[in-house]
Simulated assay, not measured.
Amino acid sequence: MAHRPPIADLALRIIGKPRHSLDAEERRVLDSMDAGTLVSRDAADEADLRASFGDRLADRVAAVGGSWGFIIAFTVVLVGWMLLNTDVLRYFGMQFDPYPYIFLNLMLSTLAAVQAPVIMMSQNRQAAKDRLAAGLDYETNLRAELEILRLHEKIDGLVIERLAALEAKIDGLANGAPRA
């Protein structure tokens, strides 16, 4: 069987950097190759493990606030508010927010002031998830490349051994040794 080079040699030869100057992903890939373990992980699972309560809450608020259900329900509430304060409650003399709906505007402004930063937090978290996914993809791709290169080395070593054996047989036949 062909000789398996140490991981440090592999790092220097294939990645072109000594082991101590490798970044975290490269070191993790080489260590997993050395240990014979898998390097691929699910980015969504990794992001969920790292998420705080605030992160999960921001994601939920953004998911609800960015849905058709929210838009339809919000439209129904707004139209209901306007009808209630324009026609129904005026009839009984109990309007609490008559046209131009100043209290409604205050509530909408407050909602927008709170919802916008929460949605931005969720977008920042999504960007962090994307960076994590890109890093995990890089590790997986690097592992695949390095494993392919190691397999090429093994096959090349086996081919060289076979060629040397064939060459020795040919030399033996040329020198008059009996055929085996």
Rank of each mutant, 00 (worst) to 15 (best):
L78N: 06
V88Y: 12
R41T: 09
D137C: 08
Y101V: 01
H152I: 08
A73L: 14
R125I: 03
L104N: 01
P6C: 07
E145G: 13
K129S: 01
T75E: 10
P117I: 06
I160H: 13
M121C: 04
L10K: 01
Y138D: 02
I7Y: 01
N141H: 09
A164H: 14
K17H: 04
V64S: 12
G157S: 06
V39A: 05
A133K: 04
F53W: 06
F70L: 08
A58R: 01
I102F: 11
G172Q: 08
G93F: 05
D42G: 09
V88I: 14
L49I: 01
A128S: 13
Y138V: 02
L10C: 00
A8H: 07
G135W: 01
R131W: 13
Y99C: 04
F92H: 15
L173A: 05
V88W: 12
D97S: 01
L12W: 06
A174N: 12
S40R: 13
L142P: 01
D87M: 12
D34M: 04
R13E: 15
A62V: 03
L132N: 02
Q115C: 08
L163K: 10
R13F: 11
L158K: 05
D171Y: 02
I160K: 11
Y101K: 00
L163Q: 10
P100T: 03
S67W: 03
V64P: 00
A168Y: 07
L158V: 04
L142T: 03
V76R: 05
L149R: 15
A116N: 14
L10A: 00
V77F: 08
T75Q: 10
T75Y: 09
M1F: 06
A128L: 12
Q123W: 14
R27I: 13
I148K: 09
I170T: 05
R50D: 10
K169L: 10
E153W: 09
E25T: 07
L104G: 00
P100S: 04
V39T: 05
M1G: 07
A134H: 10
N105A: 10
G93M: 01
I71K: 14
D48M: 08
P178N: 04
A174I: 10
I72N: 06
V77Y: 05
A144V: 12
L38N: 08
L158G: 02
N175Y: 08
G65S: 15
K169M: 14
S109P: 00
A144G: 11
G80E: 08
G157F: 00
K169Y: 06
